[in-house]
């Protein structure tokens, strides 16, 4: 676990879990495809810290970039743009690039 599993440029998909407990993965990005911009370091898991647990070992955090068209689909009402968000590794899985797009772009 010492090296980040996902390198910059790797296509990823955000998990679709719906925990009723605290987490830092915004709902609007669940299940969306994006690309890793960079790693941001390793941090104790906020999902454990929130309940007074140490959250160790720390988890790699990634800045992930998304196309607005992928995120919003038919709700998109502006010219193309990108969104980045910081997502912990256990919320990401490698994905095939471009999959899941095509519904709005």
């Amino acid at each position: 676990m010492s090296r980040p599993a996902l390198a910059a440029g790797v296509a990823v998909k955000v998990g679709t879990a719906e925990p009723s407990t605290h987490c830092r993965t915004p709902h609007y990005l669940r299940g969306k495809h994006g690309v890793v911009v960079r790693t941001l370091g390793r941090y104790p898991n906020p999902e454990a810290l929130a309940y007074h647990k140490p959250g160790l070992p720390p988890i790699t955090l990634y800045q992930v970039e998304f196309d607005a068209a992928e995120v919003w689909g038919e709700r998109l009402r502006e010219a193309p743009y990108r969104i980045t968000a910081d997502i912990f590794e256990h919320w990401l899985e490698p994905a095939v690039p471009d999959s899941g797009q095509g519904n709005a772009a």
């Binding site: 407990t21 605290h22 906020p46 810290l49 929130a50 309940y51 007074h52």
Partner: peptide, 8 residues
């Protein structure tokens, strides 16, 4: 406590 607990 942590800021995370605060958010929760």
């Amino acid at each position: 406590f942590t800021v995370d607990a605060m958010r929760r």
